[in-house]
Write a protein that binds this DNA or RNA. Structure first.
Lengths: 66, 66
DNA sequence: ACAATATGCAAAATATAATTTACGTATAGA
DNA sequence: TCTATACGTAAATTATATTTTGCATATTGT
């Protein structure tokens, strides 16, 4: 499923996918795929994304149990 | 670096590496390598581990800034 | 002593994350 | 209209996570 939390956190900082990608050292496509929910990133990439976005792992990647 | 939070959370449930591995669908070696800090697991594996251990991503995989 | 469990380690093979390159569309500005 | 930016998507390649198999040691129970 899509990761809208990542998308909105990026939007809140007014960053493009490319800017975020460069900030964490991956390519634009990687960011796009993660936001689209097409594959599962590595833990280190998740952590790097959170630090750039000023969020924690739970903020961006944890789904609360219903 | 070692992931001692994972190791202690597993110990608290009195689970062996092999039991935890089976519970999340990976091999014993994968659990051992993660605890030893030898490589970075995928996000989905981290989430599966947290759910089995009754913890969140932040509990096990997030390092607070100093 | 013997057997069973738990763990660490490592080489080779496999699965998949991530890159590179490229093409398409939509929008905003000159 | 023309140009530039942003985003979605996809095939082929590369890097690396994960598996498989095996061997070693320590510990616990019989």
């Amino acid at each position: 499923m899509k990761n809208l939390k990542l998308k909105s956190a990026r939007a809140r900082l007014d960053m493009s996918q490319e800017q975020l990608a460069e900030a964490v050292g991956v390519t634009r496509q990687t960011i796009g795929m993660i936001e689209a929910g097409k594959f599962n990133p590595s833990l280190q990439l998740c952590i790097a994304l959170c630090k750039v976005l000023g969020k924690t792992l739970n903020d961006i990647f944890w789904e609360e149990e219903s």
